[in-house]
Amino acid sequence: MPNEHFAVSPDWRWYILLYFLLAGVAGGAYVIGALLRLTGVDRTAERVAFLVALPAIVVCPVLLTLDLGSPARFWHMLVNTTPGGGGLTLRPESPMSVGVWALSLFSVLALISFLAALGRPAGVARLMAGRLGTAVTLAGAVLGLFVASYTGVLLSVSNEAVWSDTWTLGGLFLASGMSAAAAVVAVAARRRAAAGTERRLAEADGWFALVELLFVVLLFITLAAAGSASTVLGHGWILLWVVVGLGLLPPLLGLARRGIPGALTAVAPGLVILGVLALRAVIVFSPQG
């Protein structure tokens, strides 16, 4: 029996769509930087990943604030402003509340890693070079994974059709965000990274795309069981799924053939990012009409 839904649309539109994309890129880039640090294969690419993560995450609070009905009250997410209340506001049952805190903490660690990657101030770079730096990077990576994925959980924790009919959105947004991040880091590190790094990043993108594909399949299985698959396929939304497929194609082909086919090399990053944007667009917009 299909799930019943009587919830109305929160009217989350372009600011939220862009935020969902950039949160995935920022979190994903930081995680890629952390993985490169752990394996130690290419310090230059590692630095580039951290240099990508901060600018992406800096835009996020701006987008979130602009989307609020009362932007000047953005800080009400962090501070309890109920009369007679006081203190900080953290509501574990609300992914939006937890996410705002994760976003804040992640931004601080992304800033530290960004400064260390720049090498200025020298004190920060020195501290980050040691064990403390590794601990900070690992903490940042965990937060990065959270920031890239909680947006999907936030949608699921609702009573909207599609969003609340599946448990897959967190994993889907995480994997697709990592895929977009790998494409961005690969482009940013081009000509600067060590030999073989571009191939490695393309392979990583292939794995992320494979995980994304797995979650797309799981998404459709769960939506079909809930009777809401037609919502994400009807009204022309299927065209966006074609874009999602085109975005998955280069990294998956690259993984299967141990290298992206030459004809696709130039357009692959653009296709990947467009595909990830289309995925979020169809998920965010289709249930809202």
Binding site: G171, L201, W207, F215
Partner: peptide
């Protein structure tokens, strides 16, 4: 679900970037 995605993506990343 997010944790499952994270574990799989990190594993894939480690394989590629090792």
């Amino acid at each position: 679900g997010a944790l499952l995605g994270s574990v799989l993506a990190v594993l894939g990343g480690l394989i590629a970037l090792r």
